[in-house]
Design a protein around this nucleic acid. Structure first.
Lengths: 113, 113
DNA sequence: TGTTGTGTTGACTTTCAACTCAACATTTGC
DNA sequence: GCAAATGTTGAGTTGAAAGTCAACACAACA
């Protein structure tokens, strides 16, 4: 499932035309067409987030398909040495979805005093 | 402490000239000069990693100063929906260094059964 | 049948990242 | 104090990201 395929499916589920979607995020409609047919690489993270908002889907879904991180997340973890160290380890461990989910739990526990 | 300042300090500590460093990573020496004086934005993540290797410093240190993630980490977490969800939460929590360190501990515990 | 709404394609543009090249300036060792 | 080593600066290059614009295709339906 490519980014284009997912985008096309989600857009249709939302009952929106390419022209409508394009207008509401401020790009040319032909650009949407090319994305849906994988003629162009996925757009910038901001644009993906804007698309997700219009189509009312979780932005992470489209972002992951595109292999991009939202800009704010990218910035906050990129600037933190401690976060970088964590991510290096996490990458080396090659966590499963289930394990990432458990890490989310650990996060929550860290905070719910 | 800018990227340039850190680079200059680390390079001098390593006892290496701009021309030597430049040659060993395959860029022009004038580029190193501009980086050290913050006349240009930090280089691509790959280049930063290459610099760190030559200077024998932990790449994370320079990467964090530049606000960049190494390409392999970027790729592996960018493509994972579960990782994205974790990072969204982590960013919202705005973890301290100490807390990131604890998360690393949780990671380790997840694996050493 | 023709016109309206929707999607596709090719060629081009604009901006930026990541540099290089040539010239000049400054510092350091003798 | 001068020559060699080292560092700085301005202008230009190259390639890729993120699109635009104009033209055409196609389906459907009045």
């Amino acid at each position: 499932m490519s980014f284009g395929t997912v985008l096309k499916d989600k857009r249709r589920e939302a009952g929106v035309t390419q022209r409508e979607l394009a207008k509401s995020i401020g790009v040319d409609f032909s650009y949407i067409s090319k994305l849906e047919n994988d003629r162009l690489p996925p757009p910038a993270a901001d644009t993906i987030v804007a698309i997700a908002e219009v189509l009312e889907v979780a932005s992470e879904e489209l972002l992951a398909e595109a292999g991009k991180l939202p800009d704010d997340v990218q910035k906050s973890i990129g600037e933190s040495l401690a976060a970088q160290e964590f991510l290096r380890d996490a990458k080396d461990f090659d966590l499963s979805d289930e394990e990432w989910s458990q890490m989310r739990e650990s996060l929550r526990k860290l905070r719910d005093d």
